[in-house]
């Protein structure tokens, strides 16, 4: 059991370290993280974001700044921090997954679906919007435990689990004695 945990921890560290093994990978990771953050934040009020972006790409920064301020005001520092961490870990996961494709020619893209809980939880609890609101569940996020922070945390854990299975994509993972991958 302990060996399994240790193997997962090792692979997780390797996976997290991979995007920083070259300048290109680092830049790509930062880019993926920035795009993910923008998507998470913009999805906190989809109808607003769509109207702003439809009016012109010049409104993108206005929308991201306004919704960041709104997320902070409505769900607080912890939720905003979780969103940032979520975006960064997603950036790492995407870069690592691409590395896996390039080096091994296959990837379990299923793990990237871990980003979905974060999207669902990204609605601002105090404006009742977000994807849940758009789907008709107005104010739903207000009723979720800790204004959706548990959902954000669950999504984050799924991403961590994905990375701990992936490891460094340049090397094949060695099965551990207790059944690692």
């Amino acid at each position: 059991m302990n060996e399994t945990v240790a193997a997962h921890a090792t692979r997780f560290v390797e996976a997290v370290g991979y995007p920083f093994t070259s300048a290109g990978r680092t830049l790509a990771t930062v880019g993926f993280a920035a795009v993910t953050y923008a998507l998470l934040i913009l999805s906190s009020f989809p109808t607003y974001s769509m109207q702003m972006l439809a009016a012109g790409p010049g409104y993108l920064d206005d929308a991201v700044v306004a919704l960041t301020a709104n997320t902070y005001a409505s769900v607080g520092t912890l939720a905003l921090a979780l969103t940032v961490v979520y975006a960064v870990v997603t950036g790492i996961a995407i870069t690592t997954a691409i590395g896996r494709i390039r080096h091994a020619g296959e990837v379990s893209a299923r793990g990237l679906s871990s980003v979905l809980p974060g999207l669902l939880a990204s609605g601002c609890a105090s404006c009742g919007a977000g994807l849940l609101g758009t789907l008709g569940f107005v104010g739903a996020l207000s009723t979720l435990p800790f204004d959706g922070n548990l959902l954000r945390l669950a999504g984050l854990l799924l991403l961590v689990a994905y990375l701990s299975r992936l490891g460094d994509p340049r090397y094949c993972a060695m099965p551990s004695a207790t059944g690692g991958e």
């Binding site: 109808t47 607003y48 109207q51 206005d62 306004a66 404006c127």
Partner: peptide, 10 residues
């Protein structure tokens, strides 16, 4: 329809 706190020019 307009939704959200859009800027004045909108």
């Amino acid at each position: 329809k307009l939704v959200g706190a859009q800027p004045y020019d909108r």
